[in-house]
Design a protein around this nucleic acid. Structure first.
Length: 426
RNA sequence: GUGAGCGUAGCUCAGUUGGCAGAGCUCAGGAUUGUGGAUCCUGUGGUCGUGGGUUCGAGCCCCAUCGCUCACCCCA
């Protein structure tokens, strides 16, 4: 206990008890993504530090204080990915994917940010990312939102609401930024310490300050919607129309800014109030400039990321425990062990769908039965002296009141199939 | 990085004004030698997070430190 090595803070083990819930969630996510024709892509967890600095932005919190970076033996600075979009773009560029037309891609895996852990926030956490490249219209923005909406339905989630906003083109965003700086500079005496810091680094972020003392100042600040360029405004209007037509409820939140520098035009967040302070389950937006920024052809792009731990906490539905074993194979007496192992292998050959636990470690019949029961198995198979001599095996039902039966080794697969089919008509 | 709360068995937690460290669950064994679950009995398991201090005596009081949790910040 004293100085045993422990996991790194904020990097949790997911134990066997939990993995079936993860698998269920991952399966649901994957099947919805496939419904929409998205394809899985896999890329490294480690990338050159510059990739993240130049996409997420030097002034962002992620880059300025949250990355796990280190110097490789050859002097390169490498970083554990804090998000997936940058790596996805890099991989797409490196393999010429964006020259081959529209790409609908997804990926899943761990991300790393060195923050103070709290509810819904870890240093190693898992995201599923969805990205669409090569489409600049609001239709694809709407598709991504509908995809999310369908996923909540598939998971039976109710308490998630959608917030959307438009940040405009990079140019109009710059104009707005200047207007904001001017406004807040005029009221510098009313700004809190954090906001003063943000004034020159990232003024848009002042807008989503939670400090109640700042609310009236923020309420009277210039609104982004006044500064949208005509194209962005039309894009946003059409998106809202599409969502209304599709029956997706949403709220326009003009203070929705997002912390990564690369976003433009559409941004959105799916939020819940059931998760404590970290209520964002899924968020994303458009990043039309990134591919070009990294030296590719101008390629519009939109995407979002799902926080899997947060989603898991919301979808706390029981009943997705791992499947119980079908058979627990008990054996006792001289020579039974080798024969039991052979028979168990034969059963696995003949009936690959069955989950068969062969008792290991010896012990009395009584203790073996106890373990059979605890394993949750439907049937116990028994091979002891009597059976061994007669070349038979006894089958005992552990969950239903049915007489124990004895069958020959050769008849075993067929009998098992019959019994288990009756138990699970499905 | 800042603040608050909490650290006693594998897990959940008791522990009185400072006086021999406990329970339930889990795990292992047993209650007529080849039969589980219910009940009963027994056992394993602890440097009370760590280090100092006060005291005849500290799980309890004081200081420091580490860890966990929640919140701020920020984000999925």
């Amino acid at each position: 206990m004293t100085d045993r090595i422990q996991a790194i803070r904020g990097m949790n083990d997911i134990l066997a008890e939990q993995t079936s819930r993860w698998q269920y969630l991952e399966m649901q996510v994957r099947s919805v993504l496939e419904q929409y024709g998205y394809q899985e892509i896999r890329f490294p967890i480690l990338e050159k530090t510059d990739l993240f600095v130049h996409s997420i932005g030097e002034t962002s919190d992620i880059v300025s204080k949250e990355m796990y970076s280190f110097t490789d033996r050859n002097g390169d600075s490498l970083t554990l990915r804090p998000e997936g979009t940058a790596g996805c773009v890099r991989a797409g560029l490196q393999h010429g994917l964006f020259k081959a037309g529209v790409q609908r891609l997804w990926y899943a895996g761990p991300m790393f940010r060195r923050e103070r852990p709290q509810k819904g926030r870890l240093r190693q956490f898992h995201q599923t990312g969805v990205e669409a490249f090569g489409l600049n219209g609001p239709d694809i923005d709407a598709e991504l939102i509908l995809l999310g909406s369908r996923l909540w339905r598939a998971l039976g989630l109710q308490d998630i609401t959608l917030q959307i906003n438009s940040l405009g083109s990079m140019d109009s965003r710059l104009v707005y930024r200047n207007a904001l700086v001017e406004y807040f500079s005029d009221h510098k005496d009313l700004l809190d310490e954090d906001s003063r810091m943000r004034l020159d680094r990232n003024p848009l972020r002042i807008l989503d300050s939670k400090n109640p003392a700042m609310q009236s100042l923020i309420d009277q600040a210039p609104a982004m919607s006044q500064y949208l360029d005509p194209e962005s405004a039309e894009h946003f209007t059409t998106l809202r129309d599409l969502l209304r037509e599709a029956g997706v409820e949403f709220m326009v939140n003009s203070r929705l800014v997002r912390g990564l520098d690369y976003y433009c035009k559409t941004v959105f967040e799916w939020v819940t109030d059931r998760l404590g302070a970290q209520g964002t389950v899924c968020a994303g937006g458009r990043y039309d400039g990134m591919v070009e920024h990294f030296g590719g052809e101008p390629t519009p792009a939109v995407g979002f990321a799902l926080g899997m731990e947060r989603l898991l906490e919301l979808a706390d539905s029981p009943g997705h425990e791992g499947r119980q074993p079908d058979l627990y194979f008990i054996h006792a007496g001289k020579g039974s062990e080798t024969q039991a192992m052979k028979l168990a292998e034969q059963i696995r050959d003949a009936k690959p769908d069955l989950k068969v636990i062969l008792h290991c470690g010896g012990g009395s019949m009584k203790s073996q039965f106890k373990k059979a029961d605890r394993s949750g198995a439907a049937l116990a198979l028994i091979l002891a002296e009597n059976e061994l001599e007669k070349r038979t095996i006894s089958i005992k039902h552990l969950r239903v009141e049915t007489a124990q039966q004895e069958v020959s080794w050769s008849a075993l697969p067929a009998v098992l199939a019959e019994i288990l089919d009756q138990n699970n008509p499905a």
